[in-house]
């Protein structure tokens, strides 16, 4: 891998964010709105639910972590969509950059886009609702890494769809995370789901990660086993995402869609 080329591609998105206040505002706005919305819901549940009454902010912490996942995925998709919208797609694919370097550049740049929104939003939650995701402790790092890998994986799958089906696949980009959210058991234990859905849910990393998040906040104990399980499941999906991306790329070369993809 050539890191200079990865940096060049990242630079394209850094320039874009730096030069566009609406884009920066968009990155900050949605996570902050989420914090306000779930902060008040969380506060209400904390005061009125026996399940949550000893644990301030379980829902809000889940909302922040879920938004982190969501932003990771959307950041990845958005950067790829920017190439399509700006009709720069062909320029990118005729430049001497490997597919692995494109994936690496998008993966590394997505974290900046994600953190631009998530860091201020997470900090706002501390004085406003008295909830700090940092109370999870060192396990938070592993939760975030696992969620990031899975978020990027969803981004990879959606971008593979964009290459395969063209810009019309864009709507799926926005819907993908909402589709998985019910199965992710972000706000409720997995036992709530019917048995057959639990089987599917357990094959996703989210269940293991969010179950453990709740365990840490409610019982004040940490078990790294579910986190590692979530992490490895995320890695498997990530490898699958890369495979699908390559498949879509080679398919697009056969169909000739790389040369005229645009709005």
């Amino acid at each position: 891998m050539n890191f200079s080329k990865i940096y060049a591609l990242s630079l394209r998105h850094i320039f874009l964010i730096k030069s566009s206040f609406p884009r920066l505002l968009d990155l900050l706005y949605w996570p902050t709105i989420q914090i306000f919305l779930w902060g008040f819901i969380s506060k209400f549940f904390t005061l009125n639910s026996t399940y949550y009454n000893n644990t301030v902010g379980v829902i809000l912490t889940a909302a922040i972590l879920y938004d982190f996942l969501f932003r990771s995925s959307i950041s990845y998709n958005m950067m790829f969509l920017e190439e399509i919208w700006s009709r720069n797609f062909t320029n990118l694919f005729i430049s001497p950059i490997k597919i692995s370097e494109i994936i690496a550049a998008l993966t590394l740049t997505a974290i900046f886009r994600t953190l631009i929104g998530m860091v201020p939003a997470s900090l706002i939650a501390i004085p406003l609702f008295g909830v700090s995701i940092f109370s999870i402790g060192p396990a938070l790092i592993f939760l975030l890494i696992s969620l990031y890998i899975f978020g990027v994986t969803l981004g990879l799958l959606v971008t593979a769809g964009l290459i395969r089906f063209g810009p019309s696949f864009e709507n799926i980009a926005w819907a993908s995370l909402f589709f998985l959210a019910p199965l992710g058991c972000i706000y409720y234990p997995v036992e709530i789901l019917p048995q057959w859905l639990q089987l599917i849910a357990n094959a996703l990393p989210l269940v293991h990660l969010f179950e453990e998040m709740r365990n840490i906040l409610i019982n004040n104990t940490v078990s790294y086993l579910p986190i590692m399980k979530g992490f490895f499941i995320s890695l498997v999906y990530f490898a699958f995402g890369i495979f699908i991306f390559y498949l879509a790329y080679f398919g697009a070369r056969v169909r000739g869609t790389l040369i005229n993809m645009g709005e």
């Binding site: 200079s4 394209r12 030069s19």
Partner: peptide, 26 residues
């Protein structure tokens, strides 16, 4: 390759666009 049917990112300055492609081409 150059074609009027493909474009460079519109929100970036000319210099920024050229810098990115200069780096991509090593």
């Amino acid at each position: 390759f150059a074609s009027p049917y493909i474009e460079l990112p519109k929100k970036l300055t000319v210099r920024q666009n050229l810098e990115i492609f200069a780096r991509l081409y090593g």
